[in-house]
Design a protein around this nucleic acid. Sequence first.
DNA 1: AGATGGATTTTC
DNA 2: AAAATCCATCTC
Length: 203
Amino acid sequence: MKTKRLGYDFFNRTSLVVAQDLLNCIITSDLPEGKVTGKIIETESYSGEDDLACHASRGRTKKTETLYRRAGTLYVYLNYGLFYLLNIVCDKKDFPSAVLIRSLEIIEGEEIVKKRIINNPHLKLNQHLATGPGKLCAALGITKDYNNLDIITSKKIYLSEGGTKIKQSDIIKSKRIGVDYAGESKDNLWRFYIENEHISKKK
DNA sequence: AGATGGATTTTC
DNA sequence: AAAATCCATCTC
């Protein structure tokens, strides 16, 4: 499947819109071990210093500086000392916002993904190869080395259009996962997904 | 220099 | 319900 690559104009919009438009899009990681592609089925939006769940709510620091950069920049950080999480910076420069990619349906490179999961002592091989943001990064081979990478021009990690654009009525909205500490921001329905067996945190 | 607190995943 | 485990930031 060869589709058009997403450009600066796609990411230079509010993260709320980008998060929903990324559903059904294709992410590719083309690293030395081989090429892996997956369809995005779950995202979350983090937007502005007023969003208490957004890392930028604690101000502009060495760590959060990435969130203020140009749209299309990758924000990758280590969470709980265990897993990397992948975000794509959105909106205009100096306004901190990003979309967290939470789950994929692996389309190509399944064997490479399985190898990466087996080699990760914190993960287990099961029917979900890239479900949940931590496992997703492991599946794609993404580490903090890719923080600040420009996803628009990179040949290693990039995003392209899916086959068909998702219908607005097919997008399910819910509260974001793991942000109960975020006061008034925690109830925002800023998690978006499409019905799929690989959704994270399913009962 | 030491303590703290997570946008998680898995297993008990 | 609890463990595994890194690092930026905070505190003394």
